[in-house]
């Protein structure tokens, strides 16, 4: 299966890409690694007139510490996250989560920015960034703006990104090498998560819990977090993980089963991260 015909452009600079998107945003799609986009295009569920390839823009491939944060260019690949010594020391949750995405071939191509912009509720990276209280940096014709990831997703596969905006960077706090866990529950090794739970301990000491596939967007286990803040036990706090969730039903699980999994995985993740 092959995509509907399209035009292809590979801008040489970020400014060029943003300018192109400004003029063609409505009928254009941005391609980075292409591992969310091309499968959808091959199934003809998406048919953009123009594909703007930003995958090689050096301006979007950085990964560095900036003050209290780590700035990661949107075109940084999963493989780069997995092997990053900076992340291993400064935010070890991210490489651990990235190592569970897809398979090695997918990780050689897929990008962090692509996953964030695509916003699949079953995706790993959005929940990881949500657990980290990360920020999505967008660039459009009027310059840059930063959106807390908690405000980035508006629904199933939809975000506050405007058609003429590009996800250019993801910023996460320096949470260190410890205090985290990722519990991903799948049928097969490289399947999408049926449910997954990311736990991060923030510099403030707060423990954040974010969940995959428990609603139309990645979602925080707010009742669990509040219980932990009040000093409740891990077991008691984890029992609240499914509160306020709206998990989907499919062949891999009923909503009831997913709520159960959320509790079990949250308990296990917390035991790994902070017990």
């Amino acid at each position: 299966m092959i995509p509907v015909a399209f035009d292809y452009q590979r801008p040489q600079t970020l400014d060029e890409a943003v300018a192109l998107l400004a003029t063609r945003g409505e009928d254009a799609t941005v391609l980075a690694g292409g591992h969310s986009l091309l499968p959808v295009m091959k199934l003809r569920m998406a048919a953009p007139e123009l594909v703007i390839d930003i995958g090689r823009l050096a301006e979007l491939r950085h990964l560095r510490v900036e003050g209290d944060e780590i700035a990661i260019g949107a075109a940084t690949r999963y493989r780069d996250l997995v092997t990053s010594t900076v992340l291993a020391a400064e935010c070890a949750l991210l490489p651990a989560v990235a190592a569970t995405v897809g398979d090695p071939q997918v990780r050689h191509r897929g990008t962090l920015g692509g996953a964030i912009a695509h916003g699949d509720p079953a995706g790993d990276m959005p929940a990881a960034i949500l657990a980290l209280d990360g920020t999505v940096v967008l660039q459009g014709p009027n310059g840059r703006r930063s959106v807390p990831v908690a405000e980035f997703y508006t629904g199933l596969f939809s975000t506050v990104r405007e058609p003429d905006e590009l996800v250019v960077e993801i910023r996460v706090p320096r949470t260190g090498a410890t205090g985290w866990a990722y519990e991903k529950f799948t049928r097969r090794s490289n399947d999408w998560a049926i449910v997954a739970v990311a736990v991060a301990t923030m510099p403030s000491g707060a423990v954040n819990v974010a969940m995959v596939n428990m609603a139309g967007t990645p979602i925080r286990a707010t009742a669990t977090e509040a219980a932990l803040a009040e000093g409740k036990s891990i077991v008691d706090a984890a029992a609240l993980a499914a509160e306020g969730t709206n998990p989907p039903a499919d062949t891999h699980g009923t909503p009831e089963y997913r709520r159960h999994l959320a509790q079990v995985l949250t308990r296990r993740a917390l035991q790994t991260a902070i017990a």
């Binding site: 292409g34 591992h35 091309l38 091959k42 995958g55 997918v106 191509r109």
Partner: peptide, 18 residues
């Protein structure tokens, strides 16, 4: 699967243009 600049990729999900 082929190698692209030495790394495995699935060539059904890479454009020749890429």
């Amino acid at each position: 699967t082929v190698l692209l600049d030495g790394e495995s990729v699935k060539s059904c999900t890479v454009l020749a243009a890429q």
